[in-house]
Write a protein that binds this DNA or RNA. Structure first.
Lengths: 189, 189
DNA sequence: ACCATTTGCCTAAGAGCTTTAGGCAAGTGC
DNA sequence: GCACTTGCCTAAAGCTCTTAGGCAAATGGT
């Protein structure tokens, strides 16, 4: 019997593609086996279990997202950098909804600490260097930006803003304007 | 054989409690049947299927959340109202994590239109009456607030802010201060 | 109070996903 | 060329979901 050439990495990538097609929550070891034209049990030599597979997909998504963000931030500062970072999240979620959902997957603490999640926080801090914020306000601002980016993208993808004018692109720009204004004028306690 | 007195409503409430205990994604028709000491198939007379059950739980959560919000907003205006509404979301998510997750469940368009989701949007608009925003800025602001509230709560619950100073309560207050300042000083396009 | 009807929960059964155990054959290294 | 490792397989058990059909408990009209 010819071998299919399974690998944890190939499975992870295929799982991520599957997530983008059918949604992260419907990523299943069985479906993945079907796609590789292989029996289900065979996957268990490469991946511990379903949880492990999902964790790998999540880590992949976090990496990809961090790579895109690093690219987008190169050579930018101030509002330019803010908008670039924001767009990376929004565009990634549009291009890869399943991967984006995977990036939200609850990781075990050690996995989380070793993940690209750390880079995300660093990059948000890098954006804030264009604004004049001392600690602890900088941390507050990091958390605010994370909340807005994630919250907006997830509401928009979830259809929370649908069927209503004005269109979401317009809102997105105005929110970025507003955040820029806010960061330039962060209120004292 | 004694009857268990099953009802769509009782199942929904028990399902919501179950969600709070083990997480919304682990709410299962089987587990619910176990809790009522009844065979699984019996639930299918009261609830169409697993999807239907989850939808009902989601609608319940949206109602409860809207009721809490309406309560909290009564007699408040301006920043007071803003903070009260924000706290309702955060507190509800803390008290009822499973229900909160359920409230994020993707509803079918008709279900969504008939849900308490509409009230949520109205209440956010009510809060904005304390600030001087004309359309379309008001809609942009509604979306911003929704994004921040949802994004913050979901990152905080997901452990996104864990293990790091300053504590999340402090950040939350400062974010509300910042939003208040931003709304009082919304930038022109 | 009695019988007919409705309603509620049951048994049975099929189909899918997950996971473990053990086997045979295709590659790998001496 | 042979022993060994590795990769995919078959088999099987356990869990969830869902439908179909049956019996008994409630309900209500006479």
């Amino acid at each position: 019997m010819a071998r299919a050439g399974l690998t944890a990495e190939r499975l992870t990538r295929a799982g991520a593609d599957l997530a983008d097609e059918v949604g992260f929550e419907r990523v299943t070891v069985s479906e993945l086996a079907r796609r590789f034209d292989v029996k289900v049990a065979s996957l268990y030599s490469h991946v511990k279990n379903s949880q492990d597979l999902k964790t790998r997909i999540a880590l992949l998504a976090l990496e990809e997202l961090a790579d895109r963000a690093a690219d987008a931030l190169a050579g930018r500062a101030g509002k330019d950098a803010l908008a670039a970072l924001a767009d990376v999240y929004r565009d990634y979620a549009r291009d890869h909804p399943g991967r984006y959902a995977a990036a939200q997957f609850r990781l075990a603490p050690e996995a989380a600490a070793a993940s690209a999640g750390v880079r995300h926080a660093q990059m948000t801090r890098a954006v804030l260097r264009g604004y004049d914020l001392a600690e602890p306000d900088q941390t507050h601002a990091v958390r605010l930006l994370g909340s807005v980016f994630h919250g907006y993208v997830s509401l928009e993808m979830g259809g929370g803003f649908s069927h209503s004018a004005p269109d979401t692109q317009e809102t997105w720009s105005r929110i970025l304007d507003a955040l820029d204004a806010l960061l330039r004028n962060w209120p004292a306690p």
